[in-house]
């Protein structure tokens, strides 16, 4: 597997960095298995989405400039989040409408930035992981990954190679879980209704675990599962694919 010609810059995301570094290490493991050499530059923090979606375009632009600079020299940038990858791919170029040079650099970054599972499957042709996990799981498609990046089949392809794992599709898989960044805090009642519906669908799927490619959605879903005292585990898909699910407690469980 030691084709190390491909240099990947891992964009960790602020949520993974703070809440669940294991997801970052799972991503590194998978990328290395797929023949990449991985670096996670210290100069990164956040993709700027909180500022961007709250109307602070100026700050978002400054953060984007920094990300563009930090990751300019990698062959690829891989993100264990459809939402943050979507921010870089779909929204960075538009931040520099007035600045042709920066726009070109933003487009160059956008073109080489991928959500983790779509990079593994689509770019590396890596479809079989060396993991086993005897569980019935269901999958929630994060909205940005699904609709901004068209990521749908890739996580399922990879999960199909996990020994012992069975996937039951979630009804309403394409419906938002109610996270939406600051939306969850600003409109808790509406967010509650959305995540309660999501959790009810998860329960109805009969799965023992719900997986997703976005930690934002997962903190929301896991938080609701815990609040309702449901036994369903919530995990980032990378943990399962990297074979870390056995020893790592699920999101929201005592560590």
């Amino acid at each position: 597997m030691a084709e190390t010609g491909v240099r990947v810059g891992l964009f960790v995301t602020c949520l993974v960095d703070l809440f669940r570094p294991s997801v970052g290490f799972a991503a590194v493991k998978l990328l290395e298995e797929a023949g990449c050499s991985v670096e996670a530059p210290f100069a990164q923090t956040c993709c700027g989405q909180p500022s961007y979606n709250s109307g602070d375009r100026q700050s978002a632009t400054r953060i984007a400039e920094k990300v563009i600079e930090t990751f300019a020299d990698y062959d690829y940038v891989v993100v264990p989040s459809g939402s943050c990858a979507g921010m870089i791919r779909r929204h960075y170029p538009g931040l520099f409408a007035e600045d042709a040079e920066m726009r070109a650099r933003a487009e160059a970054l956008a073109a080489k930035t991928y959500e983790l599972t779509s990079f593994l499957v689509g770019v590396r042709g890596f479809t079989r992981v060396k993991a086993r996990w005897r569980k019935r799981v269901t999958y929630h498609d994060g909205c940005s990954g699904l609709r901004e990046l068209g990521v749908r089949d890739e996580p399922r392809t990879l999960l199909a190679s996990v020994e012992g794992l069975a996937l039951s599709e979630l009804s309403g898989a394409e419906t938002c879980c109610g996270f939406g960044g600051s939306f969850a805090v600003k409109y808790p009642d509406i967010s509650d209704k959305m995540v309660a519906d999501k959790v009810a669908d998860i329960a109805a799927s009969g799965a023992e675990a719900v997986l997703c490619g976005d930690l934002g959605c997962l903190l929301n879903i896991a938080g609701k599962l815990c609040r309702l005292g449901r036994a369903v585990e919530a995990r980032h898909v990378a943990e399962v694919l990297a074979g870390m699910a056995e020893e790592l407690p699920p999101i929201g469980a005592p560590g």
């Binding site: 703070l18 809440f19 669940r20 570094p21 294991s22 808790p188 009642d189 967010s191 509650d192 995540v195 903190l219 929301n220 896991a222 938080g223 609701k224 815990c226 609040r227 999101i251 929201g252 560590g255």
Partner: peptide, 8 residues
């Protein structure tokens, strides 16, 4: 409306 999972 929901718990906040603790970080690792």
């Amino acid at each position: 409306v929901r718990d906040l999972p603790a970080p690792e």
